[in-house]
Computed example of a mutant assay.
Amino acid sequence: MSDKIIENNQVTIMGRVASEFVYSHEVFGEGFYMVDVLVKRLSNSEDRIPLMVSERLIDVTQDYTGEFIVASGQFRSYNRHDEQKNRLILSVFVREIVFAQEELDGAKTNTIFLDGYICKEPVYRKTPLGREIADLLLAVNRPYGKSDYIPCICWGRNARFAAGFQVGEHVQILGRIQSREYVKKLSETETQKRVAYEVSVSKLECMED
């Protein structure tokens, strides 16, 4: 059963380490650390993706900034209570990590497969230039009754298709993780630059349960 659940959330990324390891938390004596990785897009711009890595997988006391790694695992979420609100925090929970000699051109450097359920009404809109976009929130089950809540964004004909989804509908998604900077207004005079993470969908399918 747990193997089946692990299969419903699969991520592989390859990129350049862009930070040192920062302590996150400990579970049953096992320490977990955060590290950022820059992953190239086809356009040569980069996504800055946070990884959560166990101290048992790699020597987290070392600084690997600038080195290339391949990491695979799951895209996970948790709610952090922030400014009287819950904030959805997303990161790649790493199960395997290896070093690469160099960045592979044209390789699939950022892939994600999700199998989950629509848990919020899709939001469909058009940009001023007429591009179609749909935002989805996908609940992906995890062992022990937990779920990860993953924001996904669809474009073009996929957006039009996704706009018709109902809450509770079972879907499968293939895409890539992307980062996006935005400015959060904290007060009349104060703003803060933040980064949001979402899955940019390349393929999606509605499943018959």
Rank of each mutant, 00 (worst) to 15 (best):
R176Y: 05
T12V: 15
V37I: 15
I13K: 05
Y64A: 04
I89L: 04
G116K: 01
Q84T: 07
R56G: 02
Q84Y: 11
E67L: 11
Q178E: 12
S187E: 07
I69W: 01
A107S: 14
T61V: 07
P122G: 05
R180C: 11
S19F: 11
R56K: 15
G106H: 14
G175V: 03
E96G: 06
T191R: 11
K85N: 14
E55M: 03
M52E: 08
N79S: 13
Q10F: 05
S2N: 13
Y23M: 05
M52I: 11
V140Y: 00
E102Y: 13
Q10S: 14
F165Q: 01
L186G: 06
E205M: 09
S187D: 14
Q84D: 15
I177N: 04
E102F: 11
I112G: 03
L42V: 11
N79V: 03
E20Y: 09
I133Q: 04
G156P: 03
C154D: 02
M52S: 13
A163C: 08
F75H: 02
E26A: 10
A107R: 09
A162W: 04
L204Q: 02
I58E: 04
C206Y: 06
N44A: 12
I173S: 01
G15L: 10
E20I: 14
G116H: 04
G145L: 07
T109G: 15
M34K: 15
D148F: 05
A71L: 05
L129G: 04
P128Q: 11
L136A: 08
M52Y: 00
E198G: 03
D135T: 10
I97V: 15
R95P: 00
D209W: 11
E67Q: 15
V60I: 15
L104S: 10
K126A: 06
E188I: 07
A71W: 01
E67H: 12
A139S: 15
N110L: 01
D209Y: 12
R142Q: 06
A18D: 14
Y23I: 01
K126W: 05
T189S: 11
V11A: 00
I58C: 05
L174G: 08
S54P: 00
S200C: 08
L38H: 10
L57C: 04
V94M: 01
Q10C: 08
F28G: 03
L204F: 12
E67T: 09
L104E: 15
I97C: 07
M14G: 12
V37E: 06
S202W: 04
K184W: 04
V39C: 11
H25F: 12
E205N: 10
E67S: 13
G116Y: 00
R176L: 09
G106N: 13
V167P: 06
G175Q: 02
L174K: 12
L51D: 03
N158I: 03
V195K: 11
H81Y: 15
K85A: 09
V98F: 13
G66M: 06
G130W: 08
M207Y: 01
F165D: 05
G73Q: 00
I173R: 02
D63V: 07
M1A: 14
G29A: 12
